[in-house]
Design a protein around this nucleic acid. Structure first.
Length: 117
DNA sequence: GGTGTGACCAGCT
DNA sequence: AAGCTGGCCACAC
């Protein structure tokens, strides 16, 4: 849900893109968190798929801030170069070790807080 | 218009 | 305890 209570049913991807866009620099989130925020907890796979679509989509989405539940950069191979995702995160101050987000629990940013606003 | 797929998650064996 | 399978729903062919 966004301002004006726009329905996401029209474009599920667009919803994901916007949520991902709200992720502060230096923070990361998970597919499940985004899916849960949207309301489709069990559809976490589609969130990742939306990321894949975002790659080809004209919309610029910081997909590098989205990692899996374990904090692993699962989709790094979809950035063209595996090091790209890590590089982007490190550029934002997110330390990566062994393709994993260091202090993931601390850097984890849950979009659910948007509902609290 | 049906089937397949997809960067996941959680539950069951 | 760890591995695997199922499920979930939207988009492309």
């Amino acid at each position: 849900m966004n301002k004006q209570g726009k329905q996401f049913t029209g474009s599920f991807f667009e919803c994901v893109y916007e949520v991902v866009g709200y992720i502060p620099a230096g923070r990361v989130t998970t597919y499940g968190a985004i899916a849960a925020y949207i309301g489709t907890r069990g559809s976490a796979r589609m969130v990742g798929w939306a990321m894949n679509a975002s790659h080809t989509s004209q919309t610029n989405v910081p997909a590098h801030r989205v990692v899996n539940r374990c904090g692993l950069l699962t989709g790094k191979y979809h950035f063209g170069t595996p090091a790209m995702m890590q590089k982007l995160l490190e550029n934002e101050g997110v330390e990566i070790f062994e393709d994993k987000v260091v202090r993931f629990t601390e850097l984890f940013w849950d979009p659910i807080i948007l509902k609290s606003l």
